[in-house]
Design a protein around this nucleic acid. Structure first.
Length: 471
RNA sequence: GGCGGGGUAGCCAAGUGGUAAGGCAGGGCUCUGCAAAAGCCUUAUGCGUCGGUUCGAUUCCGACCCUCGCCUCCA
């Protein structure tokens, strides 16, 4: 069965067929972070989803080229640079380092390439020149270059592919005052922004004078450089649909680099926003969380990842601390089951349990229905536990379950909690407690139990005898 | 004003024209010297409201209510 994805371009669920004639390679671009601050949990929903999609494509046997850009020059960054007194690279470096720490904490695989806008100024200028030459862009008196939506539409090009635009009813100028721009139409967007005093030392030379790139152009320049003028998948948060992605299409297809009949991007995927505690994240409501905030509260990256990939990416969903707490219990149950299977399998290997894999991939094939996938997994856990309790699992069956789980885990990226070896002194205490229990000295036994608990180890009295587990 | 998503148990969340997955929390039980841990069982006659189509609707249609997003540099 094939993977189906919802394509914003057609507003429908489509079979995923990569452009590669061999059907093997898949190019994927995800709009990455703007590194002017610590990324918040909403930002990470998109990046974790991109990671999940990349992993699932690999599960399906595709050879994925995953590109995520780093926006390291933009209005807010320049404002930050000005406020910090640092040079641009020093300022962005801190947040980029922090970003990748967070990214790794969430179990995301490194994208194959992470291009920076400031390292692609020549490509950005070249693309802008191409658009000027095509008559789709014009220079203003101050030395900025804008993309003309009017010129684009006049040549029969379609602006408004990802959403229905009603040019007459648009409330232009309501949120951004029109007079702060020196451009032909408020709808036009900047490809190149002329240097202004506030930019400080952030500027580059260009055919139009000193300045810096507009925001949308970097994604066009870098994605086409690394993945070619046409590629398979482009993802981002739903707020990027307009204008960012629409503008990317206009720029990239306006430059005319695609083969006849080819689009810039075949599948556009958009991740819905997160609600936190039932509300839009905002600092004043106290529900604005960076990843660091949550880690500081004692939650682990794996628990946060679990919550982020517990609901379908196309629906906005409510991220709550209650669910984050619940994630720990749910994952512990999964770990417990796997660890029992591991003991049983005792290094035997086997073909993967095909039923579990089939159920998992059927759910994932359906536009990455992770909720359905988790449903299969927990049904399997319950059934497995029942069989385990009845001593009805053979070593071979255990190995088959583990083999299937390994493949699923490669997709979900929920690695198991690292095992900690029990210090021998605690094992000794455990033996002493057993001796005390045998002698019916329960006072002494309970004291040892307390002592171990204080040290962070809980005793599990199983029918096979006691064992220690890290709290 | 325009365009587009949503409203399913205490919380989160799948799903289907034929009688509601899964997770957490709650309750019960097994195990235990007692606990804990672990495990099992259980928890929506109901899917925003009101109509309509239908043998049958949570699922399709209509109206309404509520909510979220975008409408020119916000994941």
């Amino acid at each position: 069965m094939g993977l189906k994805l919802f394509n914003t371009l057609t507003r429908s669920v489509e079979e995923f067929v990569p452009r590669d004639p061999q059907g093997k390679k898949a190019g994927m671009y995800c709009c990455g972070p703007t590194i002017h601050n610590f990324a918040h949990i909403g930002n990470f929903r998109t990046f974790v989803f991109a990671d999940l999609l990349r992993r699932y494509l690999e599960f399906k046997g595709y050879e994925v080229q995953h590109v995520m850009n780093i926006t390291d020059v933009e209005d807010k960054i320049i404002a930050g640079v000005r406020g910090s007194g640092l040079a641009l690279p020093e300022f962005t470096h801190r947040y980029e380092t922090a970003f990748f720490e967070d990214f790794a904490a969430l179990g995301c695989l490194s994208p194959h390439q992470t291009p920076h806008a400031t390292e692609h100024i020549p490509q950005i200028i070249a693309l802008t020149e191409k658009l000027v030459a095509q008559g789709f862009a014009y220079q203003t008196a101050d030395g900025s270059v804008y993309f003309s939506i009017q010129a684009y539409r006049d040549r029969g090009r379609h602006y408004g592919q990802l959403l229905n635009l009603n040019f007459e009813a648009m409330r232009v100028g309501e949120r951004v005052s029109a007079d702060e721009y020196d451009k032909e139409s408020v709808a036009d967007f900047a490809l190149w922004k002329a240097r202004v005093p506030e930019d400080g030392s952030v500027y580059w030379p260009s055919p139009w004078g000193e300045g810096r790139p507009g925001w949308h152009i970097e994604c066009s320049a870098m994605s086409m450089k690394l993945l070619g003028p046409s590629f398979d998948l482009h993802l981002g948060g739903e707020d990027l649909i307009f204008p960012h992605h629409e503008d990317e299409i206009a720029q990239s297809e306006g430059a005319g680099l695609q083969q006849p009949g080819e689009r810039f991007v075949k599948y556009w995927l958009h991740v819905a926003h997160l609600l936190v505690e039932g509300n839009k994240m905002s600092k004043s409501l106290g529900n604005f969380f960076t990843l660091r905030d949550l880690l500081a509260k004692g939650f682990s990256g794996r628990e946060i990842r679990y919550v982020l990939i517990s609901a379908a990416y196309r629906s906005s969903f409510n991220f709550t601390l209650e669910n984050l707490t619940g994630a720990r219990t749910a994952l512990a149950r999964l770990d417990e089951c796997l660890s029992k299977l591991r003991v049983l399998a005792a290094y035997k290997t086997s073909e993967a349990d095909s039923r579990l894999l089939a159920e998992f991939s059927a759910a994932m094939d359906d536009d990455l229905n992770v909720s359905g996938a988790w449903g299969c997994i927990f049904n399997w856990v319950r059934e497995t536990n029942k069989l385990l309790a009845a001593n009805q699992v053979s070593a071979l069956q255990a190995a088959a379950g583990l083999a299937a789980w390994q493949r699923i885990e490669n997709v979900l990226g929920i690695s198991e909690r690292a095992k900690t070896e029990v210090p021998t002194e605690f094992l000794t205490l455990l033996e002493q407690r057993q001796a005390a229990r045998k002698a019916k000295d329960y006072k002494r036994a309970d004291a040892i139990r307390q002592e171990l608990k204080a040290a962070g180890w809980v005793i599990e009295d199983t029918p096979q005898g006691p064992r220690l587990k890290r709290i």
